[in-house]
């Protein structure tokens, strides 16, 4: 599938801010089933962009805007070629072994952390998904994964505005509702509870005829490690295998490793974010295609300094004092 994706992020601030520093994870990954033909990044106010790979192999674009500004716009455009993947989990030869030893490089994808919190409730739920059968005959890993997907589909409801990006899986376990990020964290937690390496994927989902949920937005799903196949993507939000309409952007242990944009700034203005993703299928590769380019959007910024009120300064000084005393050695 040949896809063109436009990901527009608008950040609006209630007051002028300065010294914004941001990190973006918006460039689709280059890998076995996915080829990034082109990636463009337009940022306003104009600035220079530095890119590098993080420890997981994700591409990061970093920039800073030091002058005063009250809005930032980021437009990431990609053209990606995706391939159909092996999707018949139940035919994979791998056997699930509860106390299997993995190479240590899987440590990060087996240990709990971030919003993926271990709990007896989680473990109980994960255990309930193990297919029952002859206790002596081996259980296939594919069957466990399929069963986990079905369990989430049956017991949890997709609903917006119940959770936010800071919610941990104890929240979704408590009220049974959430969005793709919660479903993904939950599935990863259950897999790890069963000693199955699992990782978080963020990316885009191109809508298809089956009307997959979450299609107008960026999406999150899970990759499970099958020794015979490598990492295989499954989507707990839609109870399906990640096929050619899934575009991978970043992988990580949990959401904290992969946010599309992450930033800090100076000033007391509140940030409001609006994200729009548009994708369309192309019939042929455009002839004029830059592999990677960055550009500038014409948004205003101003010289000068930010004035804080006395109360804001006092608050700042108090926080500084506390942090200064938290240093070690």
């Amino acid at each position: 599938m040949l896809l063109s994706i436009t990901h527009t992020t608008d950040l609006l601030y209630s007051d002028y801010i300065n010294e914004s520093v941001m990190e973006l994870r918006m460039a689709p990954l280059q890998e076995q089933y996915q080829h990034r033909l082109s990636f463009g990044l337009d940022i306003g106010p104009a600035t220079s962009v530095k890119s590098y790979f993080d420890w997981l192999g994700n591409t990061i674009h970093a920039f800073s805007i030091n002058a005063l500004h009250n809005q930032i716009q980021i437009i990431a455009t990609s053209i990606v070629q995706t391939d159909q993947r092996s999707t018949r989990l139940e035919h994979f030869p791998d056997i699930w072994i509860r106390d299997a030893n993995f190479d240590y490089s899987f440590c990060d994808f087996l240990l709990f952390g971030g919003k993926i919190v271990d709990s007896p409730q989680l473990r109980e739920l994960a255990e309930s998904a193990i297919p029952k059968g002859n206790p002596r005959s081996p259980v296939k890993l594919g069957a466990v994964v399929t069963s986990l997907l079905r369990l989430i589909d049956e017991k949890f409801v997709y609903q917006k505005n119940v959770t936010d990006t800071s919610s941990s899986i104890t929240d979704i376990l408590a009220h049974g509702r959430g969005v793709c990020q919660d479903f993904t964290h939950l599935m990863i937690g259950m897999a790890r509870a069963l000693n199955i390496p699992a990782r978080y994927v963020s990316g885009y989902l191109h809508p298809d005829r089956q009307r997959l949920r979450g299609y107008t937005q960026t999406h999150a799903w899970v990759e499970i490690y099958f020794p015979s196949m490598g990492w295989v993507g499954v989507d707990p939000t839609n109870n399906c295998i990640a096929g050619e309409n899934f575009v991978k952007v970043a992988i990580g242990r949990n959401y904290q490793d992969v946010p599309p944009n992450k930033g800090v700034y100076k000033g007391k203005g509140e940030e409001a974010m609006e994200v729009a993703v548009h994708s369309e299928e192309l019939l042929s590769i455009p002839l004029e295609l830059a592999a990677e380019r960055t550009g500038a959007l014409n948004l205003p910024c101003y010289a000068g300094t930010r004035l804080d009120t006395k109360e804001q300064q006092a608050e700042q000084e108090q926080q500084e004092q506390q942090e200064q005393q938290q240093q070690q050695q």
Binding site: V21, K50, A62, G263, Q324, Q327
Partner: peptide, 29 residues
């Protein structure tokens, strides 16, 4: 003479105001 945790709020503790935002990217390069 500042702990890692406080060095760059973009990379480490997001609430730190003692550090230098964006320092890690420059360091990495």
């Amino acid at each position: 003479r500042l702990d890692d945790d406080f060095l760059d709020p973009l990379c480490f503790r997001g609430d730190s105001i003692l550090g230098v935002p964006g320092l890690m990217t420059v360091y990495r390069c």
